[in-house]
Amino acid sequence: MVEASQQWICVRPATYENAEESVVLEHWLKGVRGGGGELRNTTFALLDPSGKNALVRTGRSPQMVYGDVASFATGLATLAKKFEANTVAKTLPLIPSLRLGLNIAACDGIPLVAIVESKNRSWKKLFEHLVELSQSAALSGQAHYVVLKDSKGLEVMAGYKPEQFIYVLKTDVFGVTGEVVAAFKDTKTLSSVALETVFSSARIEKDRSRQHVRQGKLEGVSWESGKID
């Protein structure tokens, strides 16, 4: 599946978090069984590069449209062949806020990389280096990324070190906070090997059972959808 997906731009908007994106999701649920054109927890669509035309019927999930993994993988490969992809470097996918980033990283059990913007000359070089590394086979999809205007949200976290540009965060299981596992400020220390090691220590165990919800309720953890940070 991961291999088949590499010819696609995969986008997973967080439902209920953005009003403009909700309109897009509702659009693709029109005529879908269990959708009715209203916003639902999940929406699934395969679209052309403009994002305006569906390539197959839309639904709530790949399972609803394709039924099984093999058919889905074959469908992805076949449809992707219709498009002659440009072979230029990809952009770093970014999550719009630290709050949402921690939550999404926790959902996936992978680290969140927080990049603090700076006008320092070395920042741009470091950022470009990170983008390049993030697309290597070893690191692709192994972390989420957020760009922050300042380090305020990070300063309260355990392990925080000032005056760094890139912070690798390990979230708590609910994704409401995190700890800094490593930080980088120059290209000398930021390498593929270093990131692989750090990402490994910043993954979290995921309890995918109802116990997660029970524990969250016990601890009074809740999520306010659509909150602007």
């Binding site: 731009i9 699934f44 790949p62 498009f83 992809a85």
Partner: peptide
Amino acid sequence: RPILLQSAAP
């Protein structure tokens, strides 16, 4: 490249 869209609530 074509787009694979799968929304989800976190």
